[in-house]
Amino acid sequence: MTDTPTNPNEERKERIPALQALIDNPFLLLFIGVAMPTVFYIVWGIMEIVTIPVAP
């Protein structure tokens, strides 16, 4: 192992702000980054199309 300049316990002393914690977590970002356009663009868009009424 390489030597670590900071003690891992010391790292946890200061609480990481929530938004930094989010930005530091690629998988949480992946989830919301896929969920956002899926919900607002794809799902809502498909709903728009399927609810177009049939021509009289």
């Binding site: 938004l19 930005i23 970002l29 919301i32 980054g33 956002m36 356009p37 607002f40 663009y41 868009g45």
Partner: peptide, 20 residues
Amino acid sequence: SRGAFLLYILFLQLASAHHI
């Protein structure tokens, strides 16, 4: 800078609507 990238992650992809 990271906050700006976060805005990309959240919103950039919605612009697919430009074509519709």
